[in-house]
Amino acid sequence: MKWFRTATVGIALLLIAGCVSRNSHQAQWVYPPMAIPLQHSVQDEVQIARLTQLLQRQDLSDKVRTRMLNERGEAYDNVGLQDLARLDFAQSISIDPKQPEVFNLLGVYYTGVDQHDAAYDSFDTALEMDPKNLFALRNRAVALYYGERPELGLEDMHKLDKQQKNDPFNALWEYIMQYDLNPAKAKQDLEAKYSVHTDQWGWTIVALMLDEVSEQNAFETILQQTHDNELLARRLTETYFYLGKRYQLNGELAHAISLYKLAISFNVYDYVEHRYSFLELERIYKHVRDAQEAENKAQKSDKESDQA
């Protein structure tokens, strides 16, 4: 993406610092646990080619064309071609608008590229057609958070809590949104949820967020319990994203940058943690760039004042 190529020297230094330094009291590992990045299969390529050929036929019914567009969109998404997937999904709903699950997918795409109004419209449409779509409800809350409306995002998360209790990822996002408004209350609420946690996998990440477990112990547990490379890649994608978010909330941007880059590295394209790692990196780079510009402007102003 363009903002990777145009990063300033200051941002590059942050990246280097993040890669070579692990000075946090929690971070005891030198080399981060890794998995083999997921690779798309020949079957994915064959399916895309086959569906592309079939979609050129003029005698397809709207129902069949819609289904094929959705299948090709999913195949594009599996290989990381998200813009092509979005185009297929958009064409699909132009033929048949009564597809809440497709509007939900489009909302996630729009969130990932900072098109907030389009994301809100997509999620609103999905929820109007299917009020019980919990994925759309959480995704809308996340979109509101990235659109700098955390208080509205929390309203959705509170609705979600009533319908989907003891979900660790709901708890994580609610904590992240609440942190923008009241860090102390955010921690208190997350501790309360963790106190009655289950054996569900995501609570390990909640424990990391709360410093209830060290990074070393958490990663040792993940590596011991996960023997399948695909599952390992997915769990590490989730872990690195939320751990990066923890460092970011604490103002440790160098560590956050390194962890978001790790979350991206496993090619788990269908996870929001993969998509939103790009978004988080862009936000950090913008923050650093704006801070540098403000500092340069202040130094220039001081210099002009001295000369006067």
Score class of each variant (00 low, 15 high):
3 W>Y: 12
4 F>A: 09
4 F>I: 11
5 R>F: 14
6 T>M: 02
9 V>M: 10
9 V>E: 15
11 I>A: 01
12 A>Y: 07
14 L>A: 06
14 L>W: 08
18 G>P: 01
19 C>F: 15
23 N>E: 11
23 N>P: 04
23 N>F: 14
24 S>R: 00
27 A>D: 06
27 A>N: 01
28 Q>S: 09
30 V>W: 11
30 V>Q: 13
33 P>M: 05
34 M>K: 09
34 M>R: 09
34 M>L: 08
37 P>T: 05
38 L>S: 10
40 H>S: 13
40 H>Q: 10
41 S>Q: 04
41 S>K: 08
44 D>E: 14
45 E>T: 04
46 V>G: 00
52 T>C: 12
55 L>T: 05
57 R>H: 03
61 S>Q: 02
61 S>W: 01
64 V>E: 15
65 R>P: 11
68 M>W: 03
68 M>K: 02
71 E>W: 05
75 A>K: 01
80 G>M: 04
81 L>E: 14
82 Q>R: 14
83 D>C: 11
84 L>A: 08
90 A>R: 10
93 I>N: 02
95 I>P: 00
98 K>T: 12
104 N>W: 12
105 L>Y: 09
107 G>W: 05
107 G>P: 06
111 T>M: 08
112 G>Q: 02
114 D>I: 07
114 D>N: 15
117 D>V: 14
118 A>M: 09
119 A>E: 06
119 A>G: 06
126 A>H: 05
130 D>N: 13
130 D>R: 08
131 P>I: 11
136 A>R: 08
139 N>G: 02
144 L>T: 01
148 E>M: 06
150 P>V: 06
150 P>W: 03
154 L>H: 00
154 L>T: 01
154 L>R: 00
155 E>N: 04
157 M>Y: 00
158 H>V: 13
158 H>I: 15
158 H>Q: 13
161 D>A: 05
162 K>G: 03
164 Q>F: 06
164 Q>N: 13
184 A>G: 00
187 K>I: 03
189 D>L: 11
190 L>E: 00
191 E>W: 00
191 E>L: 07
193 K>H: 08
193 K>E: 08
193 K>R: 14
194 Y>G: 05
197 H>R: 11
198 T>K: 03
201 W>Y: 12
201 W>S: 11
204 T>M: 10
204 T>Y: 10
206 V>H: 02
206 V>N: 03
211 D>Q: 05
213 V>K: 04
214 S>M: 01
216 Q>K: 11
218 A>E: 00
219 F>A: 06
220 E>K: 14
220 E>G: 07
223 L>Y: 03
223 L>C: 07
223 L>I: 14
228 D>L: 05
234 R>F: 12
238 E>F: 11
239 T>L: 04
240 Y>E: 02
241 F>R: 02
241 F>Y: 14
250 N>G: 11
254 A>E: 09
265 S>M: 04
267 N>K: 02
268 V>E: 12
275 R>N: 12
276 Y>L: 13
277 S>L: 05
279 L>V: 10
283 R>D: 03
284 I>D: 00
287 H>D: 09
287 H>Q: 15
287 H>G: 02
288 V>N: 05
290 D>I: 12
294 A>T: 13
295 E>F: 15
296 N>T: 15
301 S>Q: 14
308 A>W: 14
